[in-house]
């Protein structure tokens, strides 16, 4: 009996992805985990994590950043994704004219750089030269204006909404594609049964796009917990006012690279990066095992 044939092609086809991914993602990841276990004096086990979670000077900053990060994520989930679904539903409506123009206009900010978005919004909202105060003034609502980016209560929410403005195009596109892939026969059959308008969306279309909404949620989660650029550009590494906009990314940056007279501490920085990695890993696992497997998929 001949030995089973070695199927070399599997290894060959997998090789490029495995090699590239290992070299630029997996090795650095383990490098970071390893770095977190060392200090100036050498190997120190989990001491860095004990400091990060046990020393109030570090843990307060960490929990503040994590809390802000969660709020940043909540705003995205509550504002960005529902608006994305709504826009997609409007765009998919066959009676809408100029759909392509709207689609492009809404998607364009997504391809802009964070730096440009940060600067432009900072200028728009500037109490000195911004157009926001004068536009509100033109409709008699000048009293509503406040230096939002400079107040502890509103700065983080303002930045989250700026980020929503920039990225709302992504959920819109993904859901738009999911809606288009629903065959007309299904919709027509539903209409024959007397389901139209809002009921049609809720009972037929929404269940069919749930997998897309799931993917969008997990993309938003990973993106938000890795966020850094927008805060850094508009509020600086100290994430003012009074750390009200400090998220894990800016906390990591300050610790790892140092700031002004504060020298960088790569080991503590790596400990924070590891904590971020674990948080994201936990979130993704929760989604994969808790949600993804229960979603029903329909094949047409």
């Amino acid at each position: 009996m001949a030995a089973p044939k070695v199927r070399w092609h599997i290894a060959v086809f997998l090789a490029p992805a495995v090699l590239v991914y290992t070299a630029i993602m997996i090795i650095p990841l383990f490098g970071t985990l390893n770095l977190a276990l060392y200090g100036e004096e050498g190997f120190r086990g989990f001491q860095n994590f004990r400091v990060l979670f046990g020393d109030p000077l570090w843990s307060d900053a960490f929990w503040n950043a994590l809390g802000n990060n969660i709020w940043f994520f909540v705003i995205h989930m509550l504002v960005q994704n529902p608006i994305g679904v709504l826009l997609a539903a409007l765009l998919a409506s066959p009676r809408l004219r100029f759909a392509a123009a709207y689609r492009t206009a809404i998607f364009v900010p997504t391809i802009l750089s964070f730096v440009i978005v940060g600067f432009v919004w900072k200028l728009i909202l500037s109490p000195l030269w911004g157009i926001a105060p004068s536009m509100l003034g033109a409709i008699g609502l000048k009293g509503l204006f406040a230096p939002w980016l400079g107040q502890e209560g509103s700065a983080l929410t303002t930045l989250a909404l700026i980020s929503v403005w920039q990225f709302v195009g992504i959920p819109m596109m993904l859901i738009y594609a999911a809606l288009l892939s629903i065959p007309d026969e299904v919709l027509e059959a539903a209409e024959m049964d007397g389901i139209t308008g809002w009921a049609l969306f809720r009972k037929v279309q929404l269940p069919l796009i749930l997998p897309a909404i799931g993917i969008i949620s997990i993309l938003t989660f990973v993106g938000n917990f890795n966020a850094f650029d927008l805060i850094y550009v508009s509020q600086g590494a100290l994430a003012g006012p009074d750390f009200a906009t400090d998220i894990l990314g800016t906390f990591l940056y300050r610790t790892f690279f140092g700031f002004q007279l504060q020298l960088g501490d790569p080991n503590m920085g790596a400990a924070i990066a590891t904590a971020m990695f674990l948080i994201i890993l936990a979130g993704v696992c929760l989604y994969l095992f808790g949600v993804q497997r229960r979603l029903r998929r329909y094949q047409f």
């Binding site: 502890e152 100290l238 009074d242 750390f243 002004q260 007279l261 504060q262």
Partner: peptide, 29 residues
């Protein structure tokens, strides 16, 4: 005052002073 010797540790006195001065000026601390 914060530059020599006193900003060697964590938390960094200079960086903390930035935060404290801005808070005091905004009237939140």
């Amino acid at each position: 005052s914060t530059y020599a010797i006193l900003s060697r540790g964590t938390p960094n006195l200079e960086n903390e002073t930035w935060n404290a001065s801005a808070n005091v000026m905004r009237g939140t601390e």
